[in-house]
Amino acid sequence: MTKLLEWVSVFSALFAVWYSLIGGYVKHPLIEKNMTLILISPLIFVILFGLYAVTVVLYRVFTFNNCEAAAKELQEEIKEAKKDLHEKGLRW
């Protein structure tokens, strides 16, 4: 199954549950009492997921390692390499 099909099946299942609730196919006092909430629940889900995504991405941006030490080490090694290669007769 492709990833696209996986997504389509999961969303179809969720949609079927949601639609049966708002369409009145399932009857229960609790459902009728919370009808507004159920109606807007997909929107709430999208907003919450959006917040989660933004938080995670920003957190990862700010904690993205800058590798200052690695950059410094490389600069040192470049100097060392140039010197050594020059001694070995490389001209460039």
């Binding site: 941006v61 993205f64 390692n65 800058n66 590798c67 200052e68 690695a70 950059a71």
Partner: peptide, 9 residues
């Protein structure tokens, strides 16, 4: 410990 040097925001 992975990371990138030289990238802006």
């Amino acid at each position: 410990d992975g990371g990138v040097h030289g990238w802006d925001f």
